[in-house]
Design a protein around this nucleic acid. Sequence first.
DNA 1: TATGCACCCTGTAGCAACTACAGGGTCAAG
DNA 2: CTTGACCCTGTAGTTGCTACAGGGTGCATA
Lengths: 136, 136
Amino acid sequence: MKIGELSRATGTNIETIRYYERIGLLPAPDRTAANYRSYGDAHRSRLSFVRHSRDLGFTIEEIRSLLDLSDDPARDCGEADRIATAHLEQVEAKIAQLTLLRDELERIVGRCRGGIAADCRVIEALGDHRHCENPH
Amino acid sequence: MKIGELSRATGTNIETIRYYERIGLLPAPDRTAANYRSYGDAHRSRLSFVRHSRDLGFTIEEIRSLLDLSDDPARDCGEADRIATAHLEQVEAKIAQLTLLRDELERIVGRCRGGIAADCRVIEALGDHRHCENPH
DNA sequence: TATGCACCCTGTAGCAACTACAGGGTCAAG
DNA sequence: CTTGACCCTGTAGTTGCTACAGGGTGCATA
């Protein structure tokens, strides 16, 4: 399969596939006589793994570790669980932070009554942290 | 006030202050005889505005628009409200997305019973989107 | 007077994770 | 034989900083 097909099969931008190869996340595939990349099923499932992990918010380095693990089926699986657990904690922390932020924005938004900027409570609130009720 | 003082007064990295000046977010201050930047209260409150807005997740370009508005007190304030409302909606969308993601990660994490990678359900789940219950 | 240290300056390069060209080659259909 | 879709490499841009390298300034202390 050529790069365009792999791109469609996995929903990945062509440039991104080449980027993953360049940084060593995907192995370099064979080439055709015309120097086109030629992929097989192993490439497709590896790329799916990468995309799915990226969609779940794992970093490239985390994915690299996860791929190393799955490349060596004899290794201890606990490491994969640790990476995923740590990532889950990060996501939870991010949600908590964004929730505080949302509450603060809700307080700020809608206080504007359509006057002129000099009287704007939105601008006033942005300029002065003391108007906030939460740390953020 | 020199840049180090402004840095401490606003909790902003010195390099970041110079960066904001370079991209035109902060006006270039006067210089001392030794070519040191010399800031006044107007700079400090403008920088506080920028920092606070960044903490609330506004982009540099959004902040640029908000600053333009506050620089011209006669202008219509509705624009500030529109920017803040749009931003709030983005934050809400991000929270919703991260929540789906968290649910998915929770399903994946903890399924590992400490075996070997070949049997790892974490790795299996990452490789196959069909194990997911949500879009993400 | 020397010298040490904290502070300041400019300019450039790095980070993550792509994305977007420019400038070229290949291949099948009409 | 040309058109159009596809592929190649290499480099530069994106956001919002952060981190040097290599130098200058200013003040207190030995």
